[in-house]
Amino acid sequence: MPYKKTLILSLISAALCLAFVFSSFIPASPSTCITDAGPSPEEIALEAMVKSFKLYHSFFNDFDYQQGYQLSRHGITREAAIEYLSLGFETELATAIIDEYTWIIPERGCLAIKPCDGLPILHEGDLPPLTCNRINDRNIVFSEEFTGCYSPNDRYVYRVEMKYYGNRWKISALSLDKQ
């Protein structure tokens, strides 16, 4: 009987030793190699920035054309328009955008989109050359350099400042600076 216990323990020990020695030759499954740390704050802010620009784009491009005016489907009043853009933009910035690119039509009593150029919009396709500067846990600045926009040798840097507001990232400031 003691011989059987010793033999069983020896076999188990040998099996464990072999498993340990040869474990480096056995490929691990992806689930054991990848830790689920989740996306970084930069990745989350970047995704929020793209969504914010999509929101901006939808506000100014989803409109009804009535009596010569472009009326956004996402905000027929100034307050409703600011509320809509505030989902992706800091409220003061959303207000500035609405005040710059829309006007009140007195005879209709509603907000209309001004026929003009708007803000530069960054899409998913613009992301690879984007640079990221994490200021702190609540502030990240994305920037992209553009050349040859208005003349062959010009150079501009477009900066998008993202700020974390309690439960979401929003665009808090935009700047386009000539270099």
Rank of each mutant, 00 (worst) to 15 (best):
L174F: 09
I121N: 05
F63K: 09
D154I: 04
S151P: 00
F60I: 11
K178L: 11
C17L: 15
Y65L: 11
I82H: 02
E92L: 11
T102I: 06
M49P: 13
E43W: 04
Y69Q: 04
I76R: 13
Q70D: 01
Q179E: 14
L122R: 05
G125I: 11
L111H: 06
M162D: 08
V160C: 13
P39S: 14
D117T: 06
A19C: 11
G148K: 08
Y84R: 01
Y164A: 04
H123R: 14
Y101H: 10
S72L: 08
Y158N: 06
P115K: 12
Y56P: 06
S58D: 15
I171G: 03
P39A: 14
P30V: 07
A14S: 13
I8K: 01
Y165C: 12
Y56L: 04
K170L: 12
P106E: 03
S52D: 03
T6H: 03
T91H: 08
Y84W: 02
S151W: 13
Y69P: 00
L127P: 03
F89A: 04
I98R: 02
P152D: 12
G166I: 11
Y56D: 02
I113T: 08
F89N: 11
I140C: 12
I105S: 12
R159W: 01
Y158K: 06
I82L: 05
L119Q: 06
G88A: 10
S86V: 02
D99F: 07
R134L: 05
S175I: 07
V157P: 00
F53N: 09
G88W: 08
N61K: 11
S72G: 07
L122I: 14
K114F: 02
K114S: 09
P2Q: 12
S52F: 04
D154F: 06
I104Y: 05
Q67F: 00
P2G: 12
V160I: 15
